[in-house]
């Protein structure tokens, strides 16, 4: 029999190195870009500059408002993302496709337009009615609403994927064991979606931290009042203080990194071992 039969065994002598190098090179450009931006930012400022910033009362207020508003936004986003993500993942209902598209609108619309839409909403009779009790436009609540309007859409997408990855079979078994739909959700599904909830909250928090367009239009740029960190960068740039803008940017990177790292470490510690 001929030893030159073709296609009987795959070639084993070929190296995987070119494939891995190609993956590394193709993806590496993006990683380099991020690292390059961060290094350039860090090299453009000094610890003295950062220290001076931290001593500035307005900047300290801006950091505080950013941290508080982003945290409230993240909590509110998870609050709406969990039920919406679960409904979209598990149920078929009339208007589901429309709801799906609707939830993408905050993601695809330019941020400035979101801010404009919010401004118009709160100048309609119902919006003015709300403002008779709580001042929203150009006040602190507007910062949270502007961040929430965009961040929640990302949280909903994250939660839907999280629920999609959990087999509905376990809920079904829980139903046969005596659970109502609600009990099956709270006792069986949500504990499994814990990592997803954490990710959705983190995504919403990070998204809110970077949100500027809607905040600019809906909240204005009042120093020491509706000023969050992106607003500070804008205000520094508008007064031609590039050094100040860079220093605030570095501060934002540090704050974001610290918070994301804490969440990541906490999240890994709380994830079920080998959880599906």
């Amino acid at each position: 029999m001929s030893s030159r039969r073709r296609g009987t065994t795959p070639s084993t002598g070929r190296s995987d190195v070119p494939f891995l190098v190609a993956l590394g090179v193709m993806g590496g450009f993006y990683v380099l870009l991020i690292v390059g931006m961060l290094v350039a930012d860090v090299l453009s400022t000094t610890p003295g500059h950062l220290w001076a910033l931290l001593k500035n009362r307005d900047i300290r207020y801006s950091i505080k408002l950013s941290l508080i508003s982003c945290t409230i936004t993240a909590i509110l986003s998870v609050w709406v993302a969990v039920p919406l993500g679960y409904l979209l993942s598990r149920y078929q209902f009339r208007g589901k496709a429309l709801l799906d598209v609707l939830l993408d609108i905050p993601i695809v619309l330019p941020p400035l337009v979101i801010g404009l839409c919010l401004l118009i909403l709160f100048s309609t009779p119902p919006g003015r009615g709300v403002q008779q009790f709580v001042q929203v436009t150009y006040a602190i609540p507007s910062v949270i609403i502007a961040q929430f309007a965009v961040a929640a859409a990302f949280a909903v997408r994250t939660m839907r994927v999280a629920f999609d990855q959990i087999s509905p079979r376990q809920e079904q078994v829980a139903l046969t064991l005596g659970c109502s739909r609600s009990q099956a959700f709270w006792r069986v599904v949500l504990p499994q979606a814990r990592q997803g909830v954490l990710t959705a909250g983190t995504v919403a928090w990070a998204r809110a931290m970077g949100e500027f367009g809607p905040v600019l239009v809906f909240s204005g740029t009042t120093r020491g009042y509706t000023e969050v960190l992106p607003t500070t960068v804008f205000l520094e740039l508008s007064t031609y203080s590039l050094e100040g803008a860079v220093a605030v940017s570095v501060l934002m990177v540090i704050v974001a990194l610290v918070v994301l790292l804490i969440v990541r470490v906490y999240g890994m510690g709380s994830a079920p071992v080998g959880g599906r």
Binding site: V173, Q192, R276
Partner: peptide, 27 residues
């Protein structure tokens, strides 16, 4: 399903990954 009083073991078992064996038996 909850009111039928039927014990059910599906093909993929569908054990609850966040619970111990004890918690399964006490669920």
């Amino acid at each position: 399903p909850a009111d039928r009083g039927v014990g059910y073991v599906p093909q993929d078992l569908a054990l609850f990954p966040t619970m111990t064996v004890r918690e399964h038996l006490a669920f």
